[in-house]
Amino acid sequence: MAYNPIILSITTFIFGLAGAMYIFSWVFHREGAGRWATGVTLFAAVGNLIGILMRWYESYQLGSGYGHAPLSNIYESLVFFAFTISVIYLVVERRYQNRIIGAFAIPLAFFALAYASFGTSSKISPLIPALKSNWLIAHVMTCFVGYAAFALAFGVSIMYLLKRGNDESAATGVIGRLPAAAFLDELTHQLIMFGFLFLTAGIITGAVWANSAWGRYWGWDPKETWSLITWFIYATLLHARLMRGWSGKRIAILSLVGFSAVMFTYFGVNLLPGLHSYGAMGQ
């Protein structure tokens, strides 16, 4: 009997509750609900972490050959993705003392975990030979910290577009309560720099791993290529901002394009043939 999928399913609902509370607090302007939402999110993040550790432990209980860090298939990566989103969000909330971002961030953690719990198999499978390496942990962790930062940048960019899509001076109420556009713009930029660093580290750890396992650090495998495409898009964004002075709407739109490339690298590539096919659906 494995407990980790149960813990993680319950965590999914707690994330759902936290997200709903953040949205409620923002839409109905109830700061008290927002403070509660922070507590609930913290609780969910801890539950998420316990689920991960529990799964790690339980994999070793299944017999020889089964034990491994829970970072090896789509279910485990989604669980880690949700956890990273919630942690990065909590740091951002604490640093900038703004809870409205939670209404756009925590639902992403909820969706990731909901998809993991209800759309994929939570069965613990033993590792295939290609994945038996210490690089697995470094590679998957760096990639998903990067993805989570991009996910948050995506949420903040949507906030920016909502804010600027309406006439800013006239906007009151729900839109008016969104943080200042300049702040959202800068936060997007900060998150993308953070994500870019980790995406770079993720691609590099993957390359070093590939070289130690297959003797080549780059093979134009679809997943590799798509991660590079994502890297190109965010590199373009950073150059456009720093050197061409792009900001605001254009950066927000590039951030959305970048995140869709992230999502394709994550899910879409499994539809194409290649070495990363063990990340495929339902496995």
């Binding site: 679809p222 290529t225 495409i229 190109f232 456009a240």
Partner: peptide
């Protein structure tokens, strides 16, 4: 730079 980076991104898709 921007044009080359975006071209590399778009053209890379073909190979996948």
């Amino acid at each position: 730079t921007v044009v080359v980076l975006l071209s590399l991104a778009v053209l890379s898709i073909i190979g996948t």
